[in-house]
Write a protein that binds this DNA or RNA. Structure first.
Length: 227
DNA sequence: ACCCAGGGTCATA
DNA sequence: TATGACCATGGG
């Protein structure tokens, strides 16, 4: 038994799903692009956009920054919010070029880099942390909608806390290791895609013994099977 | 015809 | 500080 339920949940998920090998991308820059495109958007739609984007330009900040908004927007269309994301992606790419590329950023300390990312228009806390963790390997815990839903369902958080509060809570209790945070977030996403849905499938969940929603879920299926 | 998806910004009170 | 509107496509 672990001293913290937060690590306990991690062990359950890891045991069940195994290592996830995230983020689904070839390069660090592709992680950054994906992190922006996946804002409130399913990953399958992001993949369509990435294919179309690669079809137009090489996946490099300078090339994307140099595209006309019309051509970029057309490539990004499948990812949704394409006008918004065109602007955000080009703003980010221009910023990255102005920094001299990725290499100088690897020398900045995590706290500084995080604030610099947040200062880029269109980069919010989750996108910044995706980039910090999965592109730069920094020990930053990513809090997304899936994280809120799972841990609220487990009764370990309320769910509507401010982003920073939740991130601090996870990082306080868990060892500050990028490898752990990397795997944990990936496992939460995998779990959300399979059983921890908006309509919970808690009866089929590895964590059902911990999940108060499992009772309601079982009761619901009992009712369903009666008719 | 709904709801949902790996958020963020902006205007308002 | 804290809600609500808005952005937009594709799948279930």
């Amino acid at each position: 038994m672990n001293s913290t339920p937060f690590l306990d949940v991690y062990d359950c998920l890891f045991q069940h799903y195994g290592p996830r090998a995230w983020w689904p991308a070839e390069t660090a820059f592709e992680v950054m692009v994906g992190a922006i495109l996946t804002q409130n958007t399913s990953w399958t739609n992001v993949e369509r956009a990435l294919v179309r984007l690669r079809d137009v330009v090489p996946l490099e900040p300078g090339a994307i920054a140099g595209l006309s908004p019309e051509r970029l927007g057309e490539a990004l269309r499948p990812a949704g919010y394409f006008n918004v994301k065109t602007k955000r992606l080009q703003t980010f790419c221009r910023w990255l070029v102005a920094q001299g590329g990725e290499e100088p950023l690897t020398k900045r300390d995590t706290h500084t880099l995080r604030h610099e990312l947040l200062a880029v228009h269109g980069i919010g806390p989750e996108t910044a942390d995706d980039i910090l963790l999965y592109a730069f390997g920094r020990p930053v815990f990513v809090v997304d909608a899936y994280t809120r839903r799972l841990f609220a369902r487990l009764g370990l958080i309320q769910g509507d806390e401010p982003y920073e509060e939740l991130r601090a809570r996870f990082e306080q209790v868990l060892a500050k290791e990028a490898g752990l945070y990397n795997e944990y977030h990936a496992l939460i996403v995998e779990h959300a895609k399979t059983v921890c849905r908006p309509r919970p499938l808690c009866s089929a969940c590895v964590l059902k013994d911990r999940c108060p929603a499992a009772g309601a879920n079982l009761a619901h299926s009992a009712i369903a099977s009666k008719r």
